[in-house]
Design a protein around this nucleic acid. Structure first.
Lengths: 198, 198
DNA sequence: GTCTATAAGAAGATAGAC
DNA sequence: GTCTATCTTCTTATAGAC
């Protein structure tokens, strides 16, 4: 990994752990092993480095979600895979936490990847739910609202888990929403349940 | 409002807007109108001031929720009131945002009010849901998991709304979870619906 | 590309006068 | 109780040598 790459990855870690406001150029230099001059050679400053780091984290998040959304299986199976995916719950969401950072939200360039990522995930989930309704697998009145609620539970699960200091709390939130979602399942579609749990 | 009080309230605002890491003693002094010496006369430093501010915000959050949880009406009506309460959505949750602050989470004293508040809200909601199951109003398999999911949707709704820059997103998340919850309503209990909407 | 030197201003206080 | 002075360390760079 070259210097530029190490700078980006170190910034990603620090933004995840401490946010933009809580991350100093000095901390980035120390973690990456790059010197002062080296950092300012590759990037004009903290904002440009942060943009590279945030963009990459946002792409990462979309790629992971996309893998689950496009997997084989029923709509409910794919949504369940997304909700129950293993996460570093106690570290929080690398993208979601940026919404709490005043300087990220105040800078349109830094904010854009965050905004686009949540819009993308919500839209994809909404399409998935709509597909489930169309095929008769699910009965829900408003796929867009349901999708928003699903993404919100994942994000809020991080908040509660961090508050309590326990990753289990996130899992419990997923249990809760999945139990409610299971009630929207059309019994007629149960025969094609690939998990054989019905 | 005396000086001490102005210091606490100014700190509350700044913690809400910028978090603990992003809030400096100087900013607190400027917003409150108190001088350097005055601030350090009333409080030993930033951590003690933050503790007073966080404690008060946590009490505030519990009081508001308690008012909705103990109101008249069906369990679902009370939960709906809680979820749909008017909030300063784009500012985020004054307590929830603290879970993203590394220095708050690292200090047991600052962290305790945050942890206790979310535990309290979740427990109260869980009891409410259990009451609904007992009276036959609702049919849900696991009230504790459902309660966790409900609090998570509220918190995650803030995250999504801030990401998109729109309070409507929070409302949409509430629509989504309430639609799922409505499916858990026992038709037999509809006759006692005090809102007369059934 | 990387290193060291330098620097203005903020962060987070302490000390002592009034 | 409040004010001003002082202090150390950190922040976020810039300049110029190697």
């Amino acid at each position: 990994m070259d210097t530029r790459e190490k700078l980006i990855e170190s910034t990603r870690e620090l933004l995840w752990e401490r946010g933009y406001v809580g991350t100093s150029p000095k901390a980035i230099q120390e973690r990456s092993g790059a010197g002062q001059g080296s950092m300012y050679h590759h990037f004009s400053g903290k904002p440009e480095l942060a943009l590279a780091a945030i963009t990459r984290s946002a792409e990462d998040m979309r790629e992971r979600a996309n893998a689950e959304f496009t997997a084989r299986g029923t709509v409910l199976a794919r949504i369940t895979a997304y909700l129950r995916r293993e996460r570093e719950v106690l570290k929080g969401c690398p993208v979601g936490r940026l919404t709490q950072d005043p300087e990220v939200m105040a800078d349109p360039a830094l904010r854009r990847p965050v905004e686009e990522t949540f819009a993308w995930v919500t839209t994809r989930l909404s399409s998935l739910l709509a597909e489930g309704v169309r095929t008769g697998e699910l009965t829900i009145p408003d796929p867009a609202a349901t999708a928003t609620a699903l993404v919100a539970v994942v994000q809020g699960g991080y908040v509660l888990a961090r508050a309590e200091g326990s990753a289990q709390v996130h899992a419990r939130a997923m249990d809760g929403i999945l139990a409610l979602l299971a009630a929207a399942k059309n019994p007629a579609a149960a025969t094609t349940d690939p998990e054989g749990k019905s």
